[in-house]
Design a protein around this nucleic acid. Sequence first.
DNA 1: TGTTTGATTGAATTTACAATCAATAATATA
DNA 2: TATATTATTGATTGTAAATTCAATCAAACA
Lengths: 201, 201
Amino acid sequence: MARNQQQNEKMREDRIKQIQAEALHQFANKGLFATKIRDIAEGVGMAQGLIYHYYKSKEDIYVELIKNALDKMNAAVLMLKETPLPPHEKISMAIKQMLYTIETSEDFTQTCRLIAQATNSTAIPEDAKKLIEEKRDLPYQELAKIIAAGQKEGTITAGDPKELALVFWTSLNGLAIYKATRREHTSMPDPGILINIFLKE
Amino acid sequence: MARNQQQNEKMREDRIKQIQAEALHQFANKGLFATKIRDIAEGVGMAQGLIYHYYKSKEDIYVELIKNALDKMNAAVLMLKETPLPPHEKISMAIKQMLYTIETSEDFTQTCRLIAQATNSTAIPEDAKKLIEEKRDLPYQELAKIIAAGQKEGTITAGDPKELALVFWTSLNGLAIYKATRREHTSMPDPGILINIFLKE
DNA sequence: TGTTTGATTGAATTTACAATCAATAATATA
DNA sequence: TATATTATTGATTGTAAATTCAATCAAACA
């Protein structure tokens, strides 16, 4: 009836991955509205029309990327949560890890950029808004829990855990965004600076 | 030859201020491309065509707003520089001041948002890119100088002044952006958390 | 070999919007 | 009052871009 099922699906998935990769790159750099379907198609090396064989619309691609980005971020936070380390070591590990990843992974900084753009604009698809609404608070919440646990142990600085978590996440996020726009010219600060905010010496 | 010069110019300036205020609001919320000239015109309560009596193009409005935003930000930093206080007090004053302004001034958070969006997109007018290139480094540089001076006096934490300045500015910026998208629901952290990063006790 | 299914193309269609423009209104000055 | 000047409107124009579509291609399988 049809060509080999597995091959077919593999091809389809490959194409979709290509489109996603190119779209992430374009959306992260230029945003939803300045990115043209033609740009994405050209980037992948296919005709514009073919994009619509795989996605219903530009917005659909965008929404899927937003979902993936938020999920990836939250998965990382949940992994941190599950790591069998005392709270203060979780915090210092997370800081080092994130700074290193910002430094080395363009994919990661672009993901941060995509989320930042979406979070800071009211002109995004309804579905994207819902996803952000649902998912953006998890990092703050989980970090606040870790911080509170560390405070009980006496290893983490005093202060409202939610406020500390807010500073933690916005700082690292801010650094990722900063880095994204100056790849070559900058490097991340010493993790010690940030670790100092949270750990008692 | 013409109607009273002063009155004419006053009217013109008022109109321009109206357009700027509305455009800042729209651009900050939706970005350059999602904002339509009609949106701005409707917001001010004028016909679309009239916008073009005051500005050559949508991009021109945008570039002017970017310029104003960067200049405002830099003026604040230069004022801090000139303030007759020892370095560590400048830093703690700046932190308190910025957190308070974020909390109370929507105009300020929107200005931060506008700059953030522009900085994070490659799809902005050439002129805007140039302005950003020229002007965005001043806060980092001036803060680094203040920090270095405080370190000499022994009142500010050790560490590369540039790195500390980077953390300072990205953190506060990150908080402004965060606040912009959640006006009612959040308040800023205790300034002490941030002050702790920079001052020796 | 012929049929079916999915991949692919690029031209055609449609829509949305920036920018222009001709016409009108309001006011100042001569 | 007549003229000049600027403000204002909203319809018109031109363009760019999203989406659709008819046609072709390639591979599997009967």
